[in-house]
Computed example of a mutant assay.
Amino acid sequence: MTTTQRLPRAWRDELVLTLRERDVSGADIGDALAHVESFCADAGQDADEAFGPARDYAASLRLPSGSPTPTPGPLLTRAMLLRYAVGMVAVALVGMSAASWARAEPLRLGAAHLAVTVVALVCLGLLVRHLTTFVRWCTTRSWVAWIVTQAGAWVAVGLGFLAAHLLPGVGVTVPAAPLTAVAAAVLVVPALVAQLRGSLDDADVVAGPLEDPAAVGRRSRRANTLLTWALPLCGLVSAGLTLGLDQLLRG
């Protein structure tokens, strides 16, 4: 059995998550992982046998809190979650308003849009309230997080169709061009500011004992760049699909 096999992924992820929740730095977490790897290799034991459950072992470590740089990965903060929620609304608005702008028509927002927005706000509130639990699901039980996400999305879609059927005449008209411009700015400006400030390069990464810290840092920067520009890219795809579908329907 190799040293990497003595530290199962589930045990490692649980240790990292528990220490990250205490805001322990990536360097200290890496040192803790190195100690566990070294001990297991010398003793011929696996991590759970030698140190017990990862959560209990993490609680026994007296490590300082206060990571010097932002924590990367799936450990979302409430502010970041709010930003992505606003971004997803902007993605939807860009997609809906782009076709109306191309036709020189105002955008009509009806009861279906209101119902979907209400469901989205309720889901956001639940996420904020149970953020730590959801983050753990994303990392250790991704299938549970996927089911919860899909359930919320389909509930929103179902209520949207129901509202459109029951209240077809309810709605407001909004100028398409200003709405498209504002939604696009909401998507692009935060990503551009993060890129120009260089905040994508200073994440506090965790490098395991058998990993090259420089390589881990490069992967983290690529992941951060992709995440930062994910919403603008989604907005571009949304607008392109909407315009393409509109052209097909009109043709």
Rank of each mutant, 00 (worst) to 15 (best):
T3I: 10
L7F: 01
A10E: 14
V16D: 03
L17E: 05
L19V: 07
R22I: 02
G26V: 03
E37W: 09
E37L: 07
E37S: 14
S38T: 15
C40I: 05
A43K: 08
Q45K: 10
D46F: 04
A47H: 07
A50I: 04
A50S: 11
D56L: 13
L61K: 09
G66I: 06
T71P: 00
G73I: 04
P74D: 05
L75A: 02
M80R: 01
V86I: 14
M88P: 00
M96L: 15
S100A: 15
W101E: 13
W101D: 13
A104Y: 06
R108C: 06
L109T: 06
G110E: 09
H113C: 09
H113M: 09
L114H: 06
A115S: 03
V119E: 01
V119T: 11
C138I: 11
T139D: 10
S142G: 12
W143D: 13
A151V: 09
G158R: 02
G160M: 05
F161A: 14
L166Y: 11
L167Q: 10
L167I: 06
P168D: 15
V170P: 08
V170D: 09
G171N: 09
G171W: 08
L179Y: 04
A185R: 07
V188D: 02
P190H: 09
A191R: 00
L192C: 11
Q195A: 14
Q195M: 13
R197Y: 05
A207S: 13
A207M: 03
N224L: 09
G240W: 02
L241R: 11
L241M: 13
L249T: 15
G251C: 08
G251H: 13
